[in-house]
Amino acid sequence: MKRNERVSMKHGAGGRAMRDLIERVFIAGAKAIPGVVGLAEMDDGAAIPMGDGFLVVTTDSHVVVPRFFPGGDIGRLAICGTVNDLAMMGATEPLALTCAAIIEEGFPFEELERIQRSMRQACDEAGCSVLTGDTKVMGKGEIDGVVLNTTGVAFTRTLVRDNGMKAGDRIIVTGPIADHGFAVLVARNDLKLEGDLRSDVAPLNELVRMILKRGGVTAMKDPTRGGVSSAIHEMASKSGVGVVLDEQAIPLRDEVRAAAEVLGIDPLHVANEGKALLGVRADAVDAVLDALRSHPLGREAAVIGTCTQSHPGRIRLHTGVGERLLAEPDGEPLPRIC
């Protein structure tokens, strides 16, 4: 470790720096238990063998500025984030959610109630409830507004990991990418952009339940912080395969494309909160796509790539006019001047 090294914002941005921090600090000090998918696997959650299946546990803390944005708010985000992490492990029927709220002194009750209503609404959509929780208040200025932590527990007989892709598998994305990140960036309003950008924040467990019934899914991950690029790099390197992506096949809303051009930010590096990346066996692609497109959250699903034996861990991106290696994001995406 370098002298005087400190945590910086890139360590929370979902890319390589964050994985390095987790590996060096937290995994190094954690004890692995045989048979359990634990911290060292760095999957979306932990899986503990139980009876004829697995108990899946996941936890996630949520901060977002602004707390309310088109398409959602911090409450909806806190529920969906955890429900989706469970779903990405194949656990689509949450048994219980917990919620810890750390609140800044002076925070308006009205806003807190609004957040609570939105959590409740998201729980209804996901078919789950918050069964226990915790509340802490910190002094003015000691924390920014409110931080929500949610933990989820669910049981599954069909555990899905993020490392099961084989050469020949196809990559499917369940809908247009980068909606959430751009919606929040624009809602912050310091860029003075206006446009119809809405977060995609939504619980994916019902959608995932439908596709898992069709079979053939070899890996799943939700491309949150760090976007599709970060998620696909992780899936490819853990699976030991290369990936070839067809950029023109990746669904993107016009407004998102426009914001990306104006700000010089690659949509592949931008967060989603209601999308999944799937590795799917070639013979199962049609069935999985059918299932996805029959659900409102998967209507615009598309096959965007193929796994290869060559260049393991690397992602080649066909752009229509050329080809490049996709880079991993190395920090929060920022607007560029050049």
Partner: peptide, 8 residues
């Protein structure tokens, strides 16, 4: 209009 987003 930047073809989807607006800005002054």
């Amino acid at each position: 209009d930047f073809f989807g987003v607006r800005r002054e």
